[in-house]
Design a protein around this nucleic acid. Structure first.
Length: 441
RNA sequence: GGGGCCGUGGCGCAGUUGGUUAGCGCGCUUUCCUGUCAAGAAAGAGGUCGCGGGUUCGAGUCCCGUCGGCCCCGCCA
């Protein structure tokens, strides 16, 4: 007999089926026993005699039985398969589970972060935990679809690089035969140079940052959603493309993940018809006006300021998302394009949402001589970025691009408190599946 | 790298101004129960309070050290 998935039972009333899955819960009434069986489609109730009484949570079972329509008074409206149940005839335990370290039967898995991650193979079975990664899948998939719809070509960026394009402190060194190489902290230089070859490119890949920071929003290994394109008239076009992408992504999440969002009791971030954008100095002025906190000379917004400007955006503009543009030129990498009117500030931007950065982007310098001059001024040796410079030496259109953090979009869309929850196997300074401080002893 | 907080049975927590046998919920074991869907009921097992030292007649409860964890800041996606 071929397997029937849990949710397929509703269409098979009166039929004999074979259900394969995990025991989600067992309710033993003595002469009658109920067992919820979970598979990738969902959960269905199996009803039977005492032979179901020995089943324990997470046992893998094959159950043959008859699908029965439940009487009206026994329908469970909370369950997608609540109108039916499977009357067990044969029960086979394929794999017996040991006693669980915590209760998996709760609607919300009530464990602390270390427990959640220490038992990752197990906690990933919980429906609400799975919902996080369903959302993440849609985020990444819809980024691809958004860029493809705009004629961008996906490419594979290298992870092993020979020099650090954006400063050196936060980069992992890699032993590479007899040479010193690094893990890429961004596909930046590659996506930019590829604009000289393909005009419009994007990539979905891991980037690595050796920043010694342990916060709720930093990881050492993250999924970067990158895009870059040429023949732009101004940085505004780059911002608009990023805006298009995130609107597309959030609309897809809203459409495809209604159930998942409901589990977290949250809706996708509110986006205004046009996402508000303001210069860093304007943002700082607003913060000063609203809070009296004077950060007007700072080169960036502190986390507290980011939260405040997001609050402002939601209250005044009805948007959870807000662009902050024109950061001090010296505070950004050598390739960012200084503003024509005010070269102290550049044509770059961040997208903030629900208090945290989602994206960084901007226009890049396309003129070869200017780029060379900037590289030198920034202390970047031209020999180290030869492959990059080559693209600009032989004709490069005006260009720009942006990069989203996939885990951050997931985290903030669902309102999670820690980015590690939005990562299946998070890497940070103190954890690589196991806690490093524990195994070093 | 700087600062704050925390560490009590498998999990999540409570333990008043230090004072007799350390509590609760979930889970676990046994029993009862034919309609539950976080099933219910009854009984039971399981901790000496991260570790080391100190103060005290007496410490989970105060002090020092140590190990571990969480959060905030710097930096960023």
């Amino acid at each position: 007999m071929t397997r029937t998935l849990a949710t397929e039972t509703v269409a098979k009333i009166g039929e004999q089926v074979l259900i394969k899955g995990w025991v989600n819960a067992r309710r033993d009434h003595g002469k009658i026993v109920f067992v919820d069986i979970r598979d990738r489609s969902g959960v269905v109730q199996v009803v039977g005699k005492t032979d179901l009484g020995d089943l324990r949570p997470e046992d893998v079972v094959y159950i043959t039985g008859l699908v029965k329509k439940r009487p009206d008074n026994l329908v469970n409206p909370e369950l997608a398969t609540g109108t039916v149940e499977v009357a067990a005839e044969k029960v086979e335990v394929v794999s017996k589970a040991e006693e669980l370290p915590f209760d998996m039967g709760q609607e919300t898995l009530e464990v602390e972060l270390p427990t959640l991650l220490d038992y990752r193979a197990l906690t990933l079975r919980h429906p609400k935990v799975q919902a996080i990664f369903k959302v993440q899948e849609v985020v990444i998939d819809s980024f691809r679809k958004a860029m493809q719809a705009k004629d961008f070509m996906e490419f594979q960026a290298p992870s092993i690089i020979s020099s650090a394009p954006e400063g050196g402190a936060e980069i992992f060194e890699v032993k590479y035969f007899d040479h010193k190489t690094y893990l890429a902290q961004s596909p930046q230089l590659y996506k930019s140079l590829l604009v000289g070859d393909f005009e419009r490119v994007f990539s979905v890949n891991k980037v690595f940052r050796a920043e010694p920071s342990v916060t709720t929003r930093h990881l050492t290994e993250v999924v970067s959603l990158d895009a870059e394109f040429g023949f732009i008239d101004s940085w505004v076009e780059v911002k608009d493309m990023a805006e298009y992408a995130i609107k597309f992504i959030l609309a897809e999440v809203e459409k495809k993940c209604a159930q998942e969002l409901a589990m977290f009791g949250i809706s996708v971030p509110k986006v205004a018809d046009e996402i508000p954008h303001l210069k860093l100095r304007e943002a700082q002025e607003i913060i000063f006006q609203r809070t009296g906190r004077d950060c007007r000379q700072e080169k960036d917004l502190a986390p507290e300021d980011e939260r405040e400007i997001c609050k402002w955006s939601l209250e005044e503009k009805g948007s959870d998302l807000v662009f902050v543009t024109h950061y001090p030129t010296r505070a950004r990498p050598f390739y960012t394009y200084p503003d024509d009117k005010d070269p102290e500030f550049n044509q770059g931007f961040d997208l903030l949402g629900r208090g945290v950065e989602w994206l960084t982007g901007g226009r890049r310098i396309h003129d070869y001589q200017t780029l060379l001059a900037h590289a030198k001024e920034w202390g970047v040796s031209p020999e180290n970025i030869q492959i990059y410079l080559q693209a600009f030496k032989y004709g490069m259109p005006p260009l720009g691009g942006f990069a989203f953090g996939a885990e951050r979009i997931t985290m903030l869309t669902l309102g999670l408190g820690n980015i590690r929850e939005a990562t299946m196997f998070p890497r940070d300074m103190e954890r690589v599946d196991v806690r490093l401080s524990t195994i070093q002893k």
